[in-house]
Structures are given as C-alpha cells and as structure tokens.
Design a protein around this nucleic acid. Structure first.
Lengths: 219, 219
DNA sequence: CCCGGTCTGTAGCATTTGTTACGCATTGCA
DNA sequence: TGCAATGCGTAACAAATGCTACAGACCGGG
C-alpha cells in the first residue's frame, strides 16, 4: 500500500488508477528549511505533501520575501499543477519546514489520472478553486485593510488554541509583505494596549476581542 | 448550430456532449454598464462570453472599486466555475461593457461535460490556471512595485496601437485600487516630463520608452 | 445656448509605511 | 565562560499614499 493512501482521495481511485499511481510515485524527504523548488525550475510532476509542511513564497526586487501560502499534509501544490498542465516553469520558491515528506506523481501519470478518475478531477478543481479564493481575498484585503488590521487578522487566524503563535517578527513581516521594523512598531502598539505579549520567537494573544475589533473579524 | 460553436473548444466535443450542451444553453444580452452579478448572488451555471466583455470587480469598505480582471469573448468566468463546483455564492461584482452576449451553461450540465469531455476539462483547468497566475503576479506587483510603476505598466499594456488609451482617471484609479486624485498627481508628473498627454476620457502615450523605464518593462 | 453632470488639474495636510541606525537580550555553541 | 548569531525594541526621518476641498473645462440634452 503506497503512502498516499493515508488520504481518502487516493483510496477511492479505480484499480487501474491505483496501479498507475503506484508505478509512478516517488517519495522525497526534506530536512528543515531546505529549498525544494526555485523560481524557474521545471516541474516534473504533481507534489502531494504527506507529512510536515511546505511554504511557497516570492522574493521582491528589494530582497524581501512574501509568503504566498502553505501546503499541508493531504494538500497538493497547485502551482506545480498549473505548470504540468501548461508546460510552464515554476513561478515561485518553495521551502520545506520541519522534516517534510512529499509524494511526486509524474506529470504524464497525473494527466491520465485526471482524465479518467473523478476523485482526481475533484481534487484538482478544488485545489485550484481554493487557491483562487485565497488569492482573491488576499488581494481584496491588501486593497481595503491597513497593515495593522491585516496583522491583527493574521495573528488571530494563526494562533494555536492556547493563543500562542510561534513565529518571529521577521517571518511575520515576510508573510505580510513588509519589514520587521514596521511589524515591531505595530506590535508595540498592541503590547501597549495589552492585547498581546511578546516573547522571543513567539507572540501570545491576551485579549482576542481587541484584535478582532482591529481586524474587523466577527468573533 | 449553437452560438458557442464559434469557439473551437465547443466544436471538438463528442456528439452526445454537443447535444447536452444545446439542450441546456441559455444566451443573455446585456446593455452597457449593466450589473450582471452582485456579490452574494447564487450562480446558476458557467458563463461564457460570446461577444463584448465583462468586468469583474470588488468594492472596498470605503466604496472604492478595484477591478479584478476582464472576461473577453471565448473566455469563461472562473469565479462562477468555482461557485458551481463548490456550491458557493459569487464573491464579487460583474458588470457588462458595451452590448455583451453571454452564454450560460447550467451547473449540472457543465459538471457532466467536465467529467467526460477532455476539451471541457482543458478549458476549465486552463481558465483556472491562467487566473491563478494573473492573481499571483498582481499580488507580487503590489508588493514590489510602487503606484507610479504600476501605473506606467498599466498604461503601456493597455494602450491601443495608436498609443491612445480610452479610459477616465477614475476608472484608472479603480483598476489600480487607489483614488482619482492620486492618479491625477502621478499623471501630472508624466505630463510634465512629456511622456504622455491627457484628454478628456483618454490618455495618449508619447514616449513609451520613458514609461517602460518607469514600469520596469523590457521594451 | 444654457445648464447640470462628468472629468480634470491642483493644493495642502494627515497618515501610513519604509528606511536607517542603533543597543540590548537571548540562545546555542565552542 | 565567552562569542557569534539571531531576535527584539526604539527613535528619527523620508517617502508614498490618502483625503478634503475647490475651480475650471468639457460634454450632451433640453
């Protein structure tokens, strides 16, 4: 039984489909922070994250990173899909976090699966759709919200159940497409009004209501 | 022969596929500037533009519009696709420009076509992919370019062969997600350096080289 | 031809964001 | 323990953008 069958979609394939998949599948492991794909690389197949997590980001001319999104276990890299369906080069950078395991389904295999297997069709369409929505709301947010509002939203949406978000301010800045100093300034305000506390490499949310107000999120 | 067969994709369907399509297809006509879909509407099917052009945009809390993209003849509304595949409500506004004709393929019909007809699969994947790329480069641009650079790029990419772009400054502002005054200020600079001339409802590009420099486009 | 609506040109000020430049704290490693 | 690397806090300044306000130009319809 291949590793992808931990995920439901791949269990519901037809038998010939499963066979094709087993034949082609490759599994890679990446150590922490390793760059998996660079902008301009050609893409050999569809990437499915089995464990760990991948981070997709771009780099601005000034050298700042801006995170586009994450790929978590069971998810598939949509940009790579785009590339294999349209024969394009990969348009961003990808970095592995923690010990990440990734399954690679070679492009030709994936394309035949897509033609005949409804589960793969759904998976594909869904992945693309979700990305479109994320990107659109991201765009809308950038146009309509100020940085402090986006920050508040980000903190709320990503904090764990204990209200603690393990992330450095530089990383935060990268996610929001700005610089560390700006983030530090905004967080200082939040600390002043006791909405959050800061630690090295982490932020603890103390008064989510305040953040929700700032980020215009219904709580 | 139905109106969609002016476009190649729909001519390459299998016979049963064509039949299904003919059964379900509806064609609508819209006068200039009519709002076609409002945010939150439910979506009845896939929209294919036959003639004219649709404009998809959002509205910020301050009431400013920001254009997301256009749908031209032969293209399909990807957001509507998303909605019919995932049973969502439409997430933006759509407005018709000029006398636009739109074909509507009801959701169930489209879904069966998608399952069995490779041309429709390709069309769908392509439409989604292209949109993802557009949105991503838009995002990257917003992060990395300043407004004047984005403006220069926009002018160059959209001007006709005669170097004239028929658009009001308010519309320009909407496309770039800013306000008219800001656009006026930036254009004033361009006029001062004689890169462009302005008329009522139009802008004439006089020295594309200058704009290309500003917008960091290789000419 | 006049008038109301739309489009444009400008100015000045308020805010937000980016930049530069430090100093200190914490961590992990030699 | 000492040192280097990394992360954080802060200040002052520069630049970009947004907002308010107003005046003149142009257009089409009555």
């Amino acid at each position: 039984m291949n590793e992808l069958e931990t995920f439901e979609v791949f269990r519901t394939l037809s038998d010939p489909g499963k066979e094709q998949l087993e034949h082609g599948l490759l599994v890679h492991r990446f150590p922490k922070s390793q760059i998996v794909i660079q902008k301009g690389n050609s893409v050999s197949g569809a990437y499915v994250v089995i464990g760990g997590q991948l981070r997709v980001f771009t780099i601005t001319p000034q050298g700042n990173e801006a995170t586009l999104y994450f790929i978590r276990p069971g998810e598939i890299c949509v940009l790579a899909l785009n590339c294999i369906f349209n024969n394009l080069l990969y348009p961003a950078w990808v970095q592995a976090e923690a010990g990440t395991r990734v399954g690679v389904i070679p492009a030709p295999v994936y394309r035949t699966l897509f033609q005949h297997e409804p589960p793969i069709q759904n998976l594909t369409i869904n992945a693309l759709s979700v990305l479109v929505f994320r990107l659109m709301s991201e765009l809308e947010e950038i146009h309509s919200l100020k940085l402090d509002e986006r920050l508040a939203k980000f903190l709320l949406l990503r904090a764990g159940v204990d209200g603690v978000l393990r992330i450095t301010q530089s990383e935060l800045a990268a996610h929001l497409g700005t610089t560390r100093e700006v983030i530090a300034r905004l967080i200082a305000k939040l600390v002043a009004e006791k909405s959050v506390e800061t630690r090295r490499g982490a932020i603890a949310i103390k008064r989510p209501e305040e953040l929700a107000k700032a980020g215009s999120i219904g709580l």
